[in-house]
């Protein structure tokens, strides 16, 4: 019989991410969800327990906070600063994890989120985007296609079928970024990748993503 301590930590590993997920789904106050996630991160720190599972819980909470933020129509500069500081915190937390598979998974999630932010930024989805000043090196580093190709795809090559959904997401974002940049001949390059993504989203019962991907395929047919 496991001790209460171990069983409680196993419970918290799930419960403390399930609660903010419920708030993300059912609460209309986005700021409230972000505050809640921030509170839980504080509680995890106060527990004073250092192991891979608890550190991973903290990373997931930071990732959840960033996902809630980037999916909103926020002020670009504030969001950019939040994103950078959260990614910085996640990178520090990753150093304490011994499981390489999880480290790669966390790196993939941060890079995918970052690419998604820069894609939305390039599409003018955030307010006052002109206030973000990137130098040439940052522009180069933060190019959506570059993040997806050199970070996400490299990490994905080390990960198994558990990450097929992320593979599909990388494919979709790459295709969107190339289309956004008016790149030629992307139809042949991405058709099979998009069809594969449709199957993956269907298997995960993600109807909205499946429909959006089918719409992209249809758009390519008309090009």
């Amino acid at each position: 019989m496991l001790e209460y301590k171990e069983k409680t930590l196993d419970l918290l590993e799930i419960l403390w991410i399930a609660i903010p997920t419920c708030f993300k789904i059912y609460s209309s106050r986005i700021e409230g969800t972000i505050t809640l996630v921030s509170t839980i991160i504080g509680r995890v720190t106060e527990l004073g327990i250092a192991n891979d599972n608890i550190t991973m819980l903290k990373i997931k909470l930071h990732l959840l906070m960033v996902a809630v933020a980037v999916n909103q129509k926020q002020e670009a500069e504030t969001l950019f600063n939040t994103l950078l500081s959260e990614i910085d915190l996640i990178d520090k937390l990753k150093l304490a994890i011994s499981n390489e598979y999880w480290v790669n998974g966390a790196s993939l999630a941060t890079n995918l989120t970052k690419a998604f932010f820069f894609y939305k930024l390039s599409r003018g989805k955030y307010a006052n985007a002109e206030r973000i000043h990137l130098n040439e090196e940052q522009k180069e580093f933060n190019s959506v296609e570059r993040i997806l190709k050199y970070s996400c795809e490299t990490i994905l090559s080390k990960l198994g079928p558990d990450f097929d959904f992320e593979r599909a997401a990388v494919g979709i974002l790459t295709c969107k970024a190339k289309k956004n940049a008016n790149k030629k001949n992307i139809k042949d390059q991405f058709e099979s990748q998009l069809k594969n993504a449709v199957d993956i989203f269907a298997a995960h019962k993600c109807k909205k993503l499946e429909l959006k991907t089918r719409f992209m395929i249809a758009e390519f047919q008309l090009l």
């Binding site: 196993d10 799930i14 399930a18 789904i25 599972n53 996902a67 999630a109 959904f165 974002l173 993503l209």
Partner: peptide, 25 residues
Amino acid sequence: NEQLIENSLVCEHGIWNFREENSFY
């Protein structure tokens, strides 16, 4: 509906899958 960047327990893939050794699981 799950978003492209969801990062929550709505996801059933990648790092969001439950750890099989977790006693509650």
